[in-house]
C-alpha cells in the first residue's frame, strides 16, 4: 500500500468510531504513522470529519415533534381501541341475534293434532260466534252445511236428536270446513250451551282417536270426543261429566 492508496482508503475513516477495526483502514492508519505527509493529511481529514459530523448533528427538529408523535399515536390507539370494542360488540350482538333466532328455526310444533283441534273449537264456543243459520230444523241445517261443503251427514245420538237445535255455523280449521251445531239443553237458561263440532277424521294427523267417547275438560268446558264413519265428533258444554253423558 502506498500513501496515495492509503489516502483513498482513509477517505472513509471517521475518528472515534469502529472504522479503525477495518483491516484496510487499520493498515492505512499504520502507514500514516510512518509517513509524515500522510499523517498531516490524516490530521486535516479527521478535523474535517469531526466538523462535518457536528454540523450534521446540529440539525434540530421542531421542539414539539416528540410530543406530537406520542399524542397522535395515543389518539390513534384510542380510536383503534374503540373500533375493536365496537367490532367485539357487533360480534356479540350477532351471536345474540343468532341465538335468539334459533328457537324460530326449530320445527314448529304440529298444529294438526286432536288436542289443538279440541282447544281451537272450544275456544270458538267460549269466545262467541255468529250463527250462520238460526233454525231448529235439522234437515234444513244439513242442507245448509252441505251447500257450504261442510260435514252434513253427521250422526246424532238419540238424546241429541230430540234436543232443541238453535242453529249452525261453519268454522274453518287447517283449511278444512268444520260444522258446528248448537243445541239448547233444558237444564240451562243459556240458549247455546251445547255445541257439536264435526270434521273429517283425516284432518287430524295425530291424537288418540277412539270410537267410544273420551270425556275431558277443555277450557273449563266438559267435552266428549269420538270418531265414527270417518268423522270426528266433538261435543262440549258447561258443567261436568254428568251433564254431558246423557247426550252421548
Amino acid at each position: 500500500m502506498n500513501p496515495a492508496e492509503a489516502r483513498s482508503i482513509l477517505q472513509l475513516y471517521r475518528p472515534g468510531t469502529d472504522d479503525a477495526l477495518d483491516p484496510q483502514i487499520a493498515a492505512a492508519l499504520a502507514l500514516a504513522r510512518q509517513d509524515s505527509e500522510l499523517a498531516r493529511w490524516l490530521a486535516e481529514h479527521c478535523d474535517r470529519q469531526i466538523t462535518l459530523r457536528n454540523k450534521f448533528r446540529q440539525i434540530a427538529g421542531p421542539p414539539a415533534l416528540k410530543e406530537q408523535i406520542i399524542s397522535e399515536q395515543a389518539a390513534a390507539n384510542r380510536s383503534q381501541s374503540v373500533k375493536r370494542r365496537l367490532a367485539a360488540l357487533a360480534a356479540a350482538v350477532s351471536v345474540l341475534i343468532l341465538l335468539l333466532e334459533i328457537p324460530w328455526h326449530r320445527p314448529a310444533p304440529p298444529t294438526d293434532t286432536l288436542e289443538v283441534f279440541q282447544h281451537a273449537m272450544m275456544g270458538v264456543a267460549l269466545r262467541g260466534y255468529g250463527m250462520d243459520l238460526t233454525t231448529n230444523n235439522l234437515p234444513q241445517i244439513r242442507s245448509f252445511l252441505a251447500q257450504k261443503q261442510a260435514p252434513a251427514d253427521f250422526q246424532l245420538s238419540d238424546t241429541l236428536k230430540h234436543a232443541t237445535i238453535n242453529g249452525c255455523a261453519v268454522e274453518s280449521w287447517q283449511a278444512t270446513k268444520v260444522s258446528m251445531i248448537c243445541f239448547h239443553t233444558p237444564k240451562s237458561a243459556d240458549q247455546n250451551n251445547l255445541w257439536l263440532f264435526v270434521v273429517d277424521q283425516g284432518v287430524i294427523r295425530k291424537g288418540n282417536l277412539t270410537s267410544s267417547p273420551a270425556v275431558q275438560t277443555i277450557h273449563q268446558l266438559i267435552t266428549a270426543t269420538w270418531v265414527k264413519d270417518g268423522k270426528l265428533y266433538l261435543l262440549g258444554t258447561q258443567g261436568s261429566e254428568v251433564d254431558i253423558r246423557p247426550y252421548l
Binding site: F56, I59, A60, G61, L65, Q68, I69, E72
Partner: peptide, 26 residues
C-alpha cells in the same frame, strides 16, 4: 425521534417532509 428527524431532513431538506417521515416511521 431526533436522529431519525436529522436523517429525514438530510434527505428532504424540508422540515414538514422530515416531520412527516419521522412520524410515519413511528
Amino acid at each position: 425521534y431526533a436522529p431519525l428527524y436529522q436523517f429525514a431532513f438530510s434527505m428532504t431538506r424540508d422540515e414538514a417532509d422530515a416531520c412527516d417521515l419521522t412520524q410515519q416511521t413511528f
